[in-house]
Design a binder for these strands. Sequence first.
DNA 1: ATCGTACTACGAAGGTTCTCGAAGTACGAG
DNA 2: CTCGTACTTCGAGAACCTTCGTAGTACGAT
Lengths: 138, 138
Amino acid sequence: MGSGSRYGHTDAGARRLTSERRERMTEQAAHRALAHPEPGGIRLEDVLHALSDPVRLGIVRRLADAPDALACSAFDVPVTKSTSTHHFRVLRESGVVRQTYRGTAKLNALRRAELDALFPGLLDHVLAAADAEDTRRA
Amino acid sequence: MGSGSRYGHTDAGARRLTSERRERMTEQAAHRALAHPEPGGIRLEDVLHALSDPVRLGIVRRLADAPDALACSAFDVPVTKSTSTHHFRVLRESGVVRQTYRGTAKLNALRRAELDALFPGLLDHVLAAADAEDTRRA
DNA sequence: ATCGTACTACGAAGGTTCTCGAAGTACGAG
DNA sequence: CTCGTACTTCGAGAACCTTCGTAGTACGAT
């Protein structure tokens, strides 16, 4: 999980996610390993970026209310399967969720404890803010 | 400040900022009015998106430490003037900062009270998270 | 009136993101 | 083994973001 440069010509520009595109599914499934950032490699800006998309924020909110990990198919997202895959990957690579295979399903769990250790209260307040916005607009 | 569609073919896609590009500087300066979203029009996703850029987060952090409003030129951002203008506009249009003219300067102030009313504790926790990340990496 | 400082608008480049459809792989059930 | 379900990869398109340089406007001071 190196850091890829992004946007523009200067080194001071934003840096965000890297993808492990070169790892084919065959191999991924073989050793059942999905690349996750270590806690120390989780960056605030990536987390905020991940949460700034309505589809992904919806996924995270749903996940926060679930007692257990959920398969990708358990979410009612307004996009196709392939787009859904993309969003789950962004969430995983930013460190927001942890994904594990289980049979044909891929389980998703919020990395609550790790995020709380890094950024105390942040996730809860974002979730509360999302709820507050819902209430306000209702 | 309508909402423009963004990305892709479906209506379910993300929606974010609109720009008031058509207002020329002449007119802006004339009636000294910059478009700001009303408190009710501030959206969580826009705020998170605004804060997910390192340049903008830096601006917001500096602003949070300042007792008074600061001119754009008071910030030591690693980009050119025109790029800086862009970032300040994103911050303004997302509702994070309030901008007012004063002579040739444009003063920037965090919309703390309004943001706290909408999303209690969110801004403080993002700022704290940014500090925590700094500390951790030092 | 002229000058300098502060900020803006415009046009463009280059990369990223979100989206889709079609085809493919992995796994468990029958 | 074959089938169905779950998820992925690939290829593509459109919109968007960040960045820049150049040229321009606004305001205060000289």
